[in-house]
């Protein structure tokens, strides 16, 4: 079953053609990594999947709803599709625990005791239970990102989107975040779409790799095939630059 399906999608920022004829099918439970040079449209693509960016043409079916249709209730999709950002975007006015509990309380009407229990379990899982009452700004980038992941998981989403989750982190923090992402990917029911430059992570975790350039998908291959033998010259060039 498809979790995310792009059919002939076109996206414009004003006159600028940001996504060109996108066709992409992500099955439920799949982990797909999106690669490509800066400015190729990776963030734009991933942000259309939870309606942060509208698309102008084609169909974009996410969890059964067509986001290309302006009538679609984006909130319903967003309840089921979490997103982790490069710059974390934790609520600056809330404690760590409140960051995690806010959406389940408001959106899912989760019972308060249950909500707190789940939030603490998630903090435990990302190794930050002792930070529950801290404000986000007092934590390191790596810690903030682990909390942002916990916040997304608290909604029990069907799919998670990651837009360069480790790019803003100090090198020594990167592995803590990748470790949690690996664990999430190991859960066979979770669909993941990940923009990253962490090739080790991509090789190890991705089922498929999508390569983008200039707003187009140039290559869509199984992970091993992509790294062993990229079909596109631009993908080959990109890989050689990243690895060396």
């Amino acid at each position: 079953m498809s979790m995310i399906e792009f059919k002939d999608v076109e996206k414009y920022y004003g006159d600028f053609h940001a996504l060109k004829d996108i066709n992409l099918d992500v099955e439920a439970g799949e982990t797909v990594v999106l690669l490509g040079p800066s400015g190729s449209g990776k963030s734009t693509l991933i942000r259309t999947v939870n309606g942060l960016e509208p698309v102008q043409e084609g169909q974009l079916i996410v969890n059964g709803q067509d986001l290309a249709n302006p009538q679609t209730d984006m909130n319903r999709t967003r309840k089921n599709v979490g997103m982790v950002f490069q710059h974390f975007n934790l609520y600056a006015n809330k404690t760590v625990l409140e960051n995690i509990m806010l959406a389940p309380r408001l959106v899912l009407k989760r019972d308060e005791a249950e909500n707190k229990k789940i939030a603490m379990e998630l903090l435990e899982r990302v190794g930050l239970a002792d930070k529950a009452d801290k404000m986000p700004s007092t934590l390191s980038g790596g810690q903030q990102q682990r909390i942002a992941i916990a916040r997304s998981l608290a909604m029990k989403p069907k799919a998670l989107l990651f837009d360069e989750p480790t790019s803003a982190l100090d090198p020594e923090m990167v592995n803590d975040v990748l470790k949690i992402m690996r664990e999430i990917a190991a859960d066979s029911s979770m669909t993941m779409l990940v923009v990253t430059h962490e090739m080790g992570f991509a090789k190890q975790v991705a089922d498929r790799v999508i390569f983008m350039a200039d707003g187009q998908i140039l290559e869509d291959s199984p992970t091993e095939e992509f790294f062993a033998n990229p079909k596109e010259p631009r993908a080959r060039q990109f890989l050689s630059q990243i690895i060396h």
């Binding site: 909130n75 967003r78 710059h87 609520y91 916040r151 909604m155």
Partner: peptide, 12 residues
């Protein structure tokens, strides 16, 4: 990013 974080988290 504050509002985007909230929207992505499911808030209206």
């Amino acid at each position: 990013g504050q509002l985007e974080g909230a929207l992505s988290n499911g808030l209206s």
